[in-house]
């Protein structure tokens, strides 16, 4: 019982973070996309449209919960939950600072990826149970691309794991503190740039973000697997999408940009502001995702599959082998 009680506040905090993130990120997305396109974005509700998302959330909450005829009832109701819960679970291992995290896991990296790979299951359930051809096509596309790109995504983080010798996200961050030769931050992005590039491409695909948003493809598939969903069920799917982009960006920061640490900043100043540094870095990552989203057109599905299976996987395998050999030569025993 006490374990349940002690676990409740962090879980509530994670839910709170997720909701706030969702609201902030939707507003940010609309503003950033607007300004990238020489537009203004939301302007009317509140100063500079700042409470627009809150109004949208209230609207979603107060809308009628429509269940179309012919849906597979239980799957239809369960699917948003199955999409939402893994997104929430993924917050568990994120290290916001040395001490601030929901739980310390020795296999934090593996856990996060394992949990995120449950999302396609909910997506397929949503698409299948909707009894709608667009939803089904969207769901199958989403599943196909998420399954295809999970492989390079995992392969791209393996070099980091090989060098650090741990799956604990905290230790991966700790390994990146300090500087090389007095000037260069010990960030993995500088050491393992190809890994980072593969990670970014696969991450965009995992998130179903433009240029890989075939699963939603507004111009072809209405709203993809979420077509038949309305009111807060749609809200949950949407929220989980934005939350996933936060988690992936946080992972990118943790793995490649030194997590909560900053080079050249002494420990005494860094410790109190560590969570702020982490969240700021994460938001910069999300901004880059949005920047890409505002720039690139959608890739065709066969091009996407070609890129994944014929280029990213072989490249990441070759890079993995190269890094493995170098690690073995430089630091015998470093692999573990």
């Amino acid at each position: 019982m006490s374990a349940v009680l002690s676990a409740t506040p962090p879980v509530l905090a994670a839910i709170g973070l997720m909701l706030v993130n969702g609201v902030v990120l939707i507003y940010m997305l609309r503003k950033v996309l607007g300004h990238l396109h020489l537009r203004l974005g939301p302007m009317h509700v509140g100063p500079k449209g700042i409470v627009q998302t809150t109004a949208d959330v209230l609207k979603l909450l107060s809308k009628e919960d429509i269940k179309p005829n012919g849906v597979d009832r239980w799957m239809y109701v369960l699917a948003p939950v199955i999409v939402f819960v893994p997104s929430l679970m993924a917050y568990a291992a994120l290290p916001f600072s040395e001490t601030l995290r929901i739980t310390r896991l020795d296999t934090g990296l593996l856990y996060t990826f394992a949990v995120l790979s449950l999302v396609p299951l909910g997506v397929i359930m949503a698409g299948w149970s909707s009894a709608n051809k667009y939803a089904l096509i969207g769901a199958l596309r989403a599943a196909a691309q998420q399954v295809a790109y999970e492989v390079p995504l995992l392969l791209s983080v393996l070099p980091v794991v090989m060098i650090v010798g741990s799956l604990d996200l905290g230790e991966i961050v700790a390994f990146q503190t300090g500087v090389w030769m007095g000037v260069v931050p010990r960030w993995f992005v500088l050491l393992l740039l190809p890994s980072f590039v593969i990670f970014m491409i696969s991450a965009l695909c995992e998130l179903n973000q433009t240029p890989f948003d075939m699963s939603e493809a507004e111009s072809e598939l209405v709203s993809g697997f979420a077509t038949e969903y309305s009111s807060m069920k749609f809200g949950l799917i949407f929220l989980s999408e934005f939350s996933n982009s936060f988690v992936i960006s946080a992972l990118a920061v943790t793995l490649f940009f030194g997590g909560w640490t900053l080079p050249f900043v002494p420990e005494s100043i860094l410790v109190p502001i560590a969570p702020i540094v982490f969240v700021t870095k994460t938001y910069i990552g999300i901004f880059v995702f949005m920047w890409i989203r505002g720039t690139l057109p959608r890739v065709r599905i066969d091009h996407l599959m070609n890129l994944g299976w014929k280029w990213l996987i072989p490249t990441s395998l070759a890079w993995l082998m190269l890094v493995g050999v170098v690690v073995k030569l430089v630091a015998p025993g470093g692999v573990g």
Binding site: H37, L38, T295
Partner: peptide, 20 residues
């Protein structure tokens, strides 16, 4: 991709042209 990203960022720094 690089060119496209540069163009959109330039647009962002240029500010909106919308007449409200």
């Amino acid at each position: 991709i690089i060119t496209g990203m540069r163009i959109t960022m330039r647009n962002m720094l240029r500010g909106p042209i919308t007449v409200k």
